[in-house]
């Protein structure tokens, strides 16, 4: 399993372009890495001499830390660049930045950017592998992979699962990557939220669309709640947080519509009391912290597979 196989691609830009076999390969490899993080000496020499650049144009503690820990556990050297587009020198383009980075010969560039498609642009300019750590509202492939890893671990399968994703679908890269991945893997996806948060023709992505929370989560094996960005209120996506919470906050009462053994997931950081009530977020069905743990394993797997997969 896994170790003699390679990911036959230079970059990981999104889930949309991955095949079922590739997703399985990544998840299987991640499973095999999980125990490294529980050993006394949490380090293997696999990626010694490999340089990983974490290029973050958007603040992110959790994803950047997860990538950094993943790289370090494989003995890669990591460089973190936290920047913002406002700090880019006037006259220097993103392509210039990419060429400069390329000239320093790293092996893998992990990019987080608020603008959709930035990793795609980077990947066309540099010969190094690019991992998309979230691009705008487009994709967040490592998040979807860790989500699928967690679901598979807990439910022993992906095919046939009913997964409900609730929240601001239009602005969520997590939702998109999960929709692409889960539908590919044979799960049934239903999405829920106010109609203002549903992107046009989203039903054509092969998902059920519901505007009532209970309808979206009915008989769900998994409920994934998305973080509500408070600033969205300004664009009238919803009238107020109070109103949003009233209709879309997952709580002890409305969760009854889902299966009894439902698992609760959230990509974090959570807004307790807005999209998820504290008793659910911190309750026995919540696997939110397991998601974080699995995130390290998934990222280790990707760094490994994109480096050529030679053990």
């Amino acid at each position: 399993m896994g170790f003699d196989m390679k990911l036959a691609r230079k970059d990981l830009l999104g889930i949309q372009e991955l095949s079922v076999e590739e997703i399985n390969l990544i998840l299987d490899t991640a499973d095999s890495f999980i125990d490294i993080s529980t050993r006394e000496i949490k380090k293997v020499p696999t990626l010694r001499g490999v340089t990983v650049v974490n290029l973050f144009y958007e603040p992110s503690t959790r994803t950047r830390t997860s990538f950094e820990i993943a790289a370090k556990r494989l003995s890669a050297d990591t460089i973190n660049i936290a920047t913002s587009t406002s700090s880019v020198v006037k006259g220097e383009t993103f392509v210039d930045t990419a060429r400069n980075l390329e000239a320093m010969n790293p092996d893998i560039i992990v990019l987080r950017h608020s603008a959709a498609g930035s990793p795609h642009m980077l990947s066309k300019v540099v010969r190094q592998s690019v991992i998309n750590a979230g691009d705008g509202a487009h994709e967040h492939p490592t998040q979807a992979l860790l989500d699928m890893m967690t679901m598979r671990e807990k439910k022993k399968r992906l095919s046939g699962l009913k997964v409900a994703i609730v929240g601001d679908i239009a602005h969520s890269r997590v939702a998109r990557s999960n929709i692409y991945g889960l539908t590919k893997m044979g799960a049934k996806v239903s999405i829920g939220g106010p109609i203002t948060m549903m992107p046009r023709f989203v039903e054509r992505l092969g998902v059920e669309v519901h505007y009532k929370l209970e309808d979206a989560i009915r008989d769900a094996d998994i409920i994934m709640m998305l973080r509500i960005q408070l600033e969205r209120q300004e664009t009238n996506l919803f009238p107020s947080l109070r109103e949003y919470a009233r209709y879309y906050c997952l709580n002890r009462k409305n969760i009854a519509a889902a299966r009894d053994d439902v698992l609760i997931m959230h990509p974090g950081p959570i807004n307790r009391g807005v999209e998820i009530s504290p008793e659910i977020a911190d309750g026995p069905d919540s696997v939110i912290l397991e998601q974080v743990t699995n995130g390290v394993a998934v990222r280790m797997a990707l760094l490994y597979l994109l480096s050529g997969g030679k053990s």
Partner: peptide, 16 residues
């Protein structure tokens, strides 16, 4: 908006 609002913008996650 950055592109036409439609299935493509939904897939690409770009404001339409």
């Amino acid at each position: 908006g950055l592109m036409n609002e439609g299935l493509s913008s939904t897939e690409l996650g770009m404001p339409g």
